[in-house]
Amino acid sequence: MNRDVKTIKPGESILDAASIMNEFRIGCLIVIIRTKLMGIITERDILEKVVAEDRKASKTKVSQVMTRDPVMIDDDKDISEAVSIMNKFDIKKLPVVSGQSLVGLLTVADLAMVQPELIKRISAIMAFPKKARTVAG
């Protein structure tokens, strides 16, 4: 997971949020007040609720666009559980918490991109080994 999670306050503008996402080349921000997690805002939310509705980014607040009470996972859970949760809820970003505190963020892109080795190992374990497939196929 990524431990250096970027955050924003609910009262800031979408223009501010977009600038932070662009600067750090990330697809979401966690919305917090002090240390309390209030929600999550993704590039998807901005596309749907700002660009597609033709709203002004400088006049729209993070709190109007963010998703409240996002699905989260405890940091002591297995990575397979995180994958299942993301699949089940159809989400691409999963905040990781320890107790009440935010400690990291796990994304679909992390799993898919940083883990090609994991995919190779899994496909090696899976029922149809590559060699057999080549012969059959």
Partner: peptide, 17 residues
């Protein structure tokens, strides 16, 4: 998409378990 990749990961993990 990367979501498709994760969906196979998820399926593979379930099969292994």
């Amino acid at each position: 998409t990367s979501t498709d990749i994760v969906s196979i990961l998820s399926k593979a993990i379930r099969e292994i378990y």
